[in-house]
Amino acid sequence: MAPVTMVEAIREALDEEMQRDPSVVLIGEDIGVYGGAFKATEGLLAKYGWERVIDTPISETAIIGAAVGMSYQGLRPVAEMQFIDFIACCFNQMVNFVAKSHYRWGGPVPMVVRGPCGGGVHGGPFHSQNPEMWFVHTPGLKVVYPSTAYDAKGLLKSAIRDNNPVLCLEHKFLYRRVKEELPAEDYTVPIGKLAVRRPGRDLTIATYGAMTLHSLDAAEELAKEGIEAEVLDLRTLMPLDRQGIIDSVRKTNKLLVVHEDVRSGGIAGEIAATVNEQAFEDLDGPILRVTSLDTPVPFSPPLEERFLPQVADITRAARELARY
């Protein structure tokens, strides 16, 4: 099998789920004839037809609303946000309609919202954001954020088969930069389970998305200095694999959280609080974090580079933590 990129893995997941289950339909802007702004849905209209691959007006509230309605019919719609930044346009549908439906009145919403997120491609303030915490903070939604082609496919399949609304964040920097051979047979990746990407004994780096690659690069450098970092790829942000984090911290006794999301209100705070509550006795040093700045995502390359966490920021923080 030839290696496939993350965006190809996503397309394979959609194709295989549509083939497997006629209740899976796609809805979004420019996803049909054009195949999606990032070509995640290329070829699916030709194969499955106009009724299953629905090009919509520029209308995010209508896209999510219609997807909710279709899910009430027992369908499993997958809605695409052309860029995840535009999910702000349908925030009300997401947090008030979608998220609360099951809790309020027992109306399950088996739908997926997926879209490209993240920076590093000079997309500027409206094509680079990481909105995960808007939704992690809204009970009723699940949020996944893969860093590999294998996980992107397996998590998307799990999301489609889940009876709950799942937000799948796909880092656009990774779309064509990560690739790997995938199993020929059907597989899923469970929602709510982290993956240990690199075992280590000296400190834990908990991260996700594109920062997983940065953290692995940093761990490689740290190893040369004799610091063995354990890198956790969270993969799912809600429900968070709290136990997996605690287990690692009990082993390494030190925790560094790295995320591309902005600093204040990022998931590092939630993880730090959880470890304080559940594993305080196991800590040998402060919980540190490396994050983006508390600013909008700037456009020009040197500005964006300053905004985003760099490998050197991670190694610096890890060295500081290793001294405890």
Partner: peptide, 30 residues
């Protein structure tokens, strides 16, 4: 959803219109 085919509203006005459009589209698809 099952027997009476009634969707619950939310307090924010207007959101039911795309939702019921989706129920209609889903019904037509089926």
């Amino acid at each position: 959803l099952q027997d009476r085919h009634v969707v619950s509203p939310i307090s924010m006005l207007g959101d039911l219109i795309p939702v019921m459009t989706g129920v209609a589209m889903g019904g037509r698809y089926l």
